[in-house]
């Protein structure tokens, strides 16, 4: 094997893609700098939100988002990379308040020798996810790379939608309530069990799904009282909460006993020594609401099949800005963000 030995500070490592502090630092230091400014009134790159919002001049916004998907394994209980690619982009649009995607693009990069049957499966599940989301793929691109230059398949999807009101991931103030739309940790747990061949038998299924319909219902119920939206993907609920707290300049008090967790995910995370709060989700949202709107939004979520387990899990505070305090039921501690991928532990 011919491996180079480089000192690491100047190299990208896996933690830079894991959704936490390191990733935000890399993006901040490398990618957001130097581009000409986005048009006035736009939500641009510097906002580091789930997507961009470009003003159309008539009070409405064109919302754009893009996402690349690599997942090992490409097929996992509850979904596959195709369903993930469609859901991820539809959900990123929804997290900007744009719940009716006009269309998606899809770019596929495939490794030489990749089984055609697997591509067919991925395609079929993209079609199904588009139907669920009420959208379609309108243009695409395909590239093949040599054997070993890519591990299997990578997908990129871009989505566009029109929004009359753009919802951000900032804007919270003390007293606001935080709602999660359902059980957390399902996706990451299912993928981890499959990736590391943990042989866990039980209901470990990814929650990967387009949830634009669910968010539409929440927006209708909450109106202006629904302040922030964020999907707790990589880094889990913990990263999403930290980002919201940081961007809004509030503290967050999270009631751990109120956070919905599947019995199978709870059991698996105990076995593997991983906190469900740092495990990725692909079909959930973290919603910030003004106190007066909390019950209406919660009721609307619970009335939707994807939001049956929705719960109010936290409150924004004026103290400890940018930090998340976890009330465990036994005591309180600061919640930390994970650095890198969660891995099964022995201690």
């Amino acid at each position: 094997m011919n491996l180079r030995l480089d000192l690491l500070g100047e190299r990208v490592s896996m933690k830079h893609g894991a959704g936490g502090r390191a990733m935000r630092q890399l993006i901040g230091e490398v990618f957001t700098d130097g581009f000409p400014k986005a048009p006035a009134g736009a939500v641009g790159l510097d906002a580091m939100d789930d997507g961009a919002a470009l003003p159309l001049g008539d009070g409405r916004f064109l919302v754009v988002t893009t996402d690349s998907h690599v997942v090992l394994p490409a097929f996992f209980p509850g979904g596959d990379i195709g369903r993930l690619a469609v859901s991820g982009t539809v959900n990123d649009l929804a997290m900007m308040g744009a719940t009716e995607p006009l269309g998606l693009t899809c770019a596929v990069v495939v490794e030489e020798g990749y089984p055609r049957a697997d591509l067919d499966r991925i395609h079929a599940s993209m079609v199904a996810a588009c139907v669920e989301a009420g959208t379609t793929v309108v243009t695409g691109d395909t590239k093949v790379m040599g054997k070993g230059q890519l591990d299997g398949v990578a997908l990129n999807t871009t989505g566009v939608a029109i929004a009359t009101r753009v919802v951000r991931d900032c804007g919270l103030r003390a007293g606001d309530r935080l709602i999660v739309t359902g059980t957390i940790g399902d996706h990451g747990c299912a993928v981890m069990a499959a990736r590391h061949k943990l042989d866990l038998a039980g209901d470990l299924r990814s929650d990967v799904a387009p949830i634009n319909g669910l968010i539409r219902a929440a927006l209708a119920a909450g109106g202006d009282g629904l302040v922030t939206l964020k999907d707790p993907t990589r880094g889990g609920l913990s990263s999403a909460l930290h980002e919201m707290a940081h961007k809004s300049g509030v503290g967050v008090l999270l009631d751990e006993t109120a956070v919905p967790v599947n019995a199978a995910v709870r059991a698996a995370s105990e076995l593997l020594g991983i906190d469900p709060l740092v495990i990725a989700n692909e079909g959930k949202a973290l919603i910030g609401v003004r106190p007066a709107a909390a019950e209406a939004v919660l009721a609307a979520l619970r009335a939707h099949p994807q939001g049956r387990d929705a719960a109010i899990v936290g409150t924004c505070t004026a103290e400890r800005r940018g930090q998340v305090v976890l009330d465990t039921g036994f005591g309180r501690r600061l919640l930390v963000e994970i650095e890198g991928e969660p891995l099964p532990r022995i201690c």
Partner: peptide, 23 residues
Amino acid sequence: TYGDMVKVPGTVLSLGDAQAEGA
């Protein structure tokens, strides 16, 4: 190895770093 070990630094590299290099 167990997951705990991956990020523990050696003199210059951790096992995770070696993995990123292709090991």
